[in-house]
């Protein structure tokens, strides 16, 4: 694979819900190994874009390329196999299964045992099961929640649930980890440790796409940032540059002529 090509390239993605245009003509690209931020006011279409990339919605028009291959109208599991893993804005864990089992399910994609393997429980299947459990424990340790491995997911604390979602997504061996507001509802300490975790993940070679409301986190973490407003991309670039963009300031603070002090309110 040519490593100078972008990992993900969106071209003119459109998505309509009835008469409402949730995404119109959005194009962007994410380079390998970067942390890419996606920000915008509520209802700007960030999560819709996420759902298009992960196969939950089919784009109305446009297409995207991931890791050199073109995808159009694909099921979520196909994109997961291609290497896109995600978390959800409103946490969607397997609530009545343990933390360990949640991560083990993430390994489904990269393992093979079928019905006959399960019934015969031959050496290959047993070895695979051991590898799944081992990798799952490793990932729980990696995100810092190895202690409650046998706790039901729904009984974990909020911050632990967010981390468990990341561990589960990492279990699919992704090339691109897409996180939908991972810091939502976290306090300052939790956000700081999340930031460290994301930096570690990036250092391990995984590209990160991040939707976030916490502008401070985005600015401190991302290599590049895109801003969506009313389904359109209004700005893209390095955080410093985007932050000073008048269109961005207007989108966040209203349509009036942007005043200089408005930008500070964002920082």
């Amino acid at each position: 694979m040519n490593h100078t090509t972008p990992l993900l390239q969106l071209s003119s993605i459109c998505k309509q819900f009835g008469g409402l245009s949730a995404l119109s003509d959005v194009s962007l690209h994410i380079r390998r190994g970067e942390i890419y931020g996606l920000i915008g006011p509520n209802g700007a279409g960030k999560t819709t874009l996420f759902n298009v990339i992960t196969g939950l919605y089919q784009p109305g028009a446009g297409e995207f390329q991931f890791n050199g291959a073109r995808y159009q109208a694909c099921k979520p599991h196909v994109l997961a196999k291609a290497g896109i893993a995600r978390t959800f804005q409103n946490i969607r864990l397997f609530a009545n299964l343990t933390a360990l089992e949640n991560v083990m399910i993430g390994r489904h994609l990269r393992t093979r045992a079928g019905v006959f393997g399960a019934l015969l429980r031959n050496r290959a299947t047993r070895d695979e099961e051991r590898a799944i459990t081992g990798r799952a424990r490793e990932l729980l340790r990696y995100v810092g929640i190895e202690k409650p491995a046998q706790t039901l997911a729904k009984h974990l604390s909020y911050g632990e649930q967010r981390r468990l979602e990341i561990a589960r997504a990492l279990a699919t061996d992704p090339l691109l980890l897409a996180l939908d507001e991972p810091a939502a509802g976290m306090n300052a300490t939790e956000t700081a440790s999340l930031k460290t975790l994301l930096q570690t993940i990036r250092a391990s070679g995984i590209t990160v796409l991040l939707i976030e409301h916490d502008v401070k986190l985005i600015m401190g973490l991302c290599d590049r940032v895109a801003v969506l407003d009313y389904g359109k991309k209004i700005a893209e670039g390095v955080p410093e540059q985007v932050r000073k963009d008048p269109a961005v300031i207007a989108a966040y603070l209203g349509q009036e002529t942007p005043r200089p002090q408005a930008g500070e309110g964002q920082g």
Partner: peptide
């Protein structure tokens, strides 16, 4: 018993718990 404690059994439970999340984790729900 063997089905329940297998990769297939876990995938079934994932579908039971949350079909959308199961799909996003690469489980072919169909």
């Amino acid at each position: 018993q063997r089905l329940e404690r297998s990769r297939i059994g876990r995938a079934w439970m994932a579908i039971r718990e949350d079909e959308i999340a199961a799909g996003a984790m690469g489980i072919n729900t169909r």
